[in-house]
Design a protein around this nucleic acid. Structure first.
Lengths: 132, 132
DNA sequence: GCATTAATTGAGTATCTCTTCAACCGATGA
DNA sequence: TCATCGGTTGAAGAGATACTCAATTAATGC
């Protein structure tokens, strides 16, 4: 039996008074169930969204697009973040990949808009962090 | 006038038909307002939360703590993630720093519990990613 | 067609981040 | 009091990330 599992057994003994090998098995199973409640694909998707937002440049862009409530031109977004034109483009395509924005070409200009997913997340984040 | 601002001017000319310097100023101001709606401290806090969750180990721990609905011992959490004991400890303290979990010492065991902030965020993430 | 403009792509690099190892702290029990 | 056990801390290396620069694409206008 692995070292970590032995520790779990001692813990369960402490908590339950006694602890057979079956009890350890059952607890491991319960913990596995908690972890596996979401499919791996969905966890990956959620991690993708979180990673996309966990960066000052991209989070600022997401917040501005959400606050604007309409599509904004790349040349406008250039004014709100402090990176090169190329950096801005990389950031925007990361947001699109994560499903947080959509892009549309309009003549020689390119416009981006926040998705519903972005709106929900930015709104909830603002709320959940301001209240305590 | 900076290169990026000139481009914005041409864009506004395109959109509005005409564009004086004042119009550019006003648009820059509007964009600045969108960006500055949240204070820098709150943005930092939100970025901290996002960074804490944007990692497989820590996100798994957060999800399990939320799903458990009660405090769990470090020795139990050891079973749900695939890192060393030390890595687990680092991950948990990052969650605590971000306000996503709280820790409590109970005799020789240490127990962690999800905060309301964690519950809200994990719940919303699950919802916002599954629906489309 | 050719030049210009808006934006994207890819390569390269500096920086940050995650994980582990080793040493450590605090509580328990012999 | 000393050894053991649960867990944390700090340093260090491997790996991932986020920029910038240079080259490229696509659209517009001459």
């Amino acid at each position: 039996m692995a070292e970590a599992t032995e520790r779990l057994q001692r813990y369960l003994e402490d908590e339950l008074g006694e602890c057979r090998d079956e009890d350890v098995e059952q607890r491991l199973d319960e913990l596995g169930t908690l972890e596996a409640a979401l499919g791996p694909a969905q966890v990956d998707d959620e991690l993708g969204v979180l990673s996309a937002l966990a960066n000052e440049t991209r989070y600022t862009l997401a917040r501005v697009l959400v606050a604007a409530g309409e599509e904004l031109c790349v040349c406008e977004l250039n004014a709100v973040v402090d990176v090169s034109e190329s950096g801005l483009s990389h950031a925007l395509s990361a947001l699109v990949d994560a499903g947080l924005a959509t892009g549309r070409k309009d003549g020689r200009w390119k416009k981006y808009r926040a998705t519903n997913r972005a709106i929900t997340l930015v709104t909830v984040l603002d709320g959940s962090v301001s209240d305590e």
